[in-house]
Structure formats: C-alpha cells, structure tokens
Computed example of a mutant assay.
Amino acid sequence: MTTGKWRLFGGLAMAAAIATGSSAARADSWKYAFEESLTEVQGVYAQQFKKYIEENSDHEVQLFPYGTLGESADIMEQAQAGILQFVDQSPGFTGSLIPEAQVFFVPYLLPTDQAHLARFYKESKAINEDFKKLYADQGLELLTMFPEGEVAMTTKEPVKSCDDLNEVKFRVMTNPLLVESYKAFGATPTPLPWGEVYGGLQTNIIQGQENPTFFLYSTKIYEVTDYITYAGHNNFTTATMANEDFYNGLGKDDQKLIQDASKAAYDYIVDYQKGLADQELKKIMDAKPEMTVTVLNEKQRSCFKNAAKEVEAKFIEMTGDSGKAILDQLKADLAATK
C-alpha cells in the first residue's frame, strides 16, 4: 500500500515535471535580425511581427536592428547557421546566394503604384511558391516579401539623363545585377557595405547611391548629397525568412502562428507606408531647403528604360532557364494584380 502511494506520487511528480518542461519548451525566445533601425520600415514590420507572436503565444521575440550583429552578410550567415531564427534581408544582398532573387533589380519591372504593389506581393505565385523553393534550397523558409518604397538616386550633381551618370562612382549593394544596371545606366558601380556609404560620399570616394525616400532621411544621406532624382526605375523589395530547420522542427500551431504573424505585419506595413515617402521628403526639404528634387519625365527616362532591356537580358544570361521562368511568372503576376 505504501509503495503504491509513493509510485502514484512519484508518477504525478514526473508528469508535472514533464508538463512543466513542455510548457517551458513552448515558451521559447526567438531571435530576429534585420537591416534597418527599429524606426525604419523593416524595424516597424519586425515590431508588428513580435507583437503578434507575443500577444498570441508565450514565446518571446528578441529584435536585433542593423549593426547589432554585424553587416547584412553576417546576419544571413547567422540565420543559415541557426543562430538566428528569423532574418529580414533584401534580395539585393541575397542575389549572390539566390541568383534568381536579383530579378527585383531588373529596372522598370515593378510598378510605382503602391496599391498594385501591395496586391502583387501578397498574391504573386512567383513569390509565394517559386521563390519559397529557391530559398529552401539555401536552408531558409521564406515567410514574405514586401515593398519599402520607390528607389531614388541621390548624387552630388544633377541627373537628368544617363549621360549625367558618366564616370560617377555610384554605390550599389553587393549584387551582380545591380552592378550591371548601373553600368548600363552609364555610371561606375561601386559595391560597398552600407556602413561605408556616408563616409564614402563625404570624402568623395563615391558620388551617388540609391535608396527609398524614408531611408534617405533616417540615415541623413541628404547631408552629403545635393540632388534627389526619381527615375521610377525600381521599388525596394525586402524578404523575411526563418531558418528552415528551426521552422520545420516546430509544431503545426507554432508554424501557423508564424505565418499569421507574417500576414498581420505585412498588412500593417503596407498601410503604414501610405504617404510615407512624401512625409519623409518634406522632412528632408525642411532640413536642407537647398536640396534639388527632380522627377524625370518620360523623355528623360527613355535612356534608362532602354538600358533596362540590356539588364533584363543580362539577368537571363546569369540565371538561365530558372531565372527566365521566374521573370516570366513575375510579369504574369504583375499583369494579374493590376
């Protein structure tokens, strides 16, 4: 009788310990790194992702803004190694890892209309099916891609045609197709990590760079350039990913939680960006009234659009049948979401 009681109590204690252990296992702390500050678009998205996870589970999400864990290449390596559970990185930096991701740098492929872009990223077969397979080949679970705004060129001299970029050392991300784009535009493309860009412009090592408007303001790049030019040639794309082994090791409930958090953050960030570029441009002009802003007309854009054909051909040459299939599917998706 006594032995039976102890067995019963022992069994209950073990069950309680297992239950406690299970609960602790469910309440994990996940690490998420991104390429911008907390107050920039990727940071705002990350905060919404974190908020959803923490409000709907016992998990914690730790956020690591740009610079806290190194440059873009560093956080990607950490995500692939499983040190980070989540990473947000532009295809501009994953282009050497996933060559087909460079398609987002084919000039004039993406529209400038925000509503169209929002539908496209959400519904695109290329993004939500084809790219998922390509990212999985690199040990990454692609959660979502989203736009960050029309890209603007900032330079020290005015740009009204491709001729104005002749011999201009133009900073680009370490992306082979972006290098080809600026060669086709007439510039001298100069790949540099972001941490060297402000100083490079300040010391005239480079004379230009491109980024969305909000980033021009938040990073104070306007302080070391004098002209902002909108040629309509691109919209900045970024992607959020999970380490694939981590993601596949989760239960279905946690996988659904992550997918739902991604969707909620996507809807939030698309709405958040409405009017953001105009607001941030006004801040730039308030801080530096002598800054010249130019929106190129169709005639002025013609040389850039002609160069885009050359870049598209180069993309297909770099990526072969796989790249061509992605490009064709993206074009079909863009037409379907107009």
Rank of each mutant, 00 (worst) to 15 (best):
Q78H: 10
S37N: 11
T292I: 15
M291A: 00
A307S: 11
D286N: 14
D113C: 05
K274R: 12
N211E: 12
F104Q: 04
H59T: 08
E148L: 12
Q114E: 14
M153S: 07
Q279E: 15
S37Q: 13
M318F: 14
K31T: 04
A265P: 08
Q273I: 02
A27Y: 05
K51Q: 13
A336Q: 01
L140P: 03
W6I: 15
K299P: 01
E244G: 00
K51D: 02
K50Q: 13
T68K: 06
G82W: 01
D260M: 07
G232Q: 09
L63T: 05
I228W: 08
S22L: 15
S302L: 14
Q138W: 02
M153I: 10
D28V: 10
P191H: 06
P176T: 10
A27E: 08
K132N: 07
V159L: 04
Q273G: 06
E223H: 11
D226T: 04
W6E: 11
P147Y: 02
M173L: 14
E312H: 00
D278I: 05
V61C: 05
D163Q: 15
Y272T: 00
A115G: 07
A118T: 01
D321M: 03
H116A: 14
G251F: 03
N56T: 02
F246V: 05
F304M: 00
F64P: 02
D226F: 07
L38H: 12
K220F: 15
L281A: 06
N128S: 09
G21R: 12
R7G: 14
L38F: 13
P158L: 03
K263V: 08
Q138M: 08
G82C: 05
A261R: 12
Q102H: 10
F86H: 03
G139W: 06
F246T: 08
I326R: 00
A336S: 14
T155L: 03
D163T: 11
E312W: 01
L110Q: 04
A27V: 06
Q47S: 04
Y32F: 15
E77T: 14
Y222G: 07
H233Y: 08
A264H: 02
T203I: 08
N204A: 13
S161W: 09
W6A: 10
S96F: 03
S302G: 02
F315S: 03
L165E: 09
A126H: 05
L276N: 06
A25I: 10
E40A: 12
G208E: 07
F131I: 01
S181N: 13
E141F: 02
N235R: 07
L134C: 04
Y230S: 09
T154C: 02
K256A: 15
A15H: 03
S218M: 12
V159Q: 06
A46K: 01
Q114K: 04
T188H: 10
G249Q: 01
K50C: 03
T238F: 01
W194V: 10
I75W: 02
P158R: 02
N175E: 14
L276V: 08
Q89V: 14
I205A: 15
A126D: 07
P176M: 11
A325I: 04
D137M: 11
K125W: 09
E298Q: 11
T190A: 09
I53P: 03
F131W: 13
V197C: 05
K309R: 01
I98V: 14
K132A: 05
I326D: 00
Y32R: 07
L110W: 00
M76V: 14
K274F: 07
R26D: 13
G11E: 14
N297M: 11
A277Q: 11
A73E: 12
V172M: 13
D164M: 09
Q329I: 04
F34E: 05
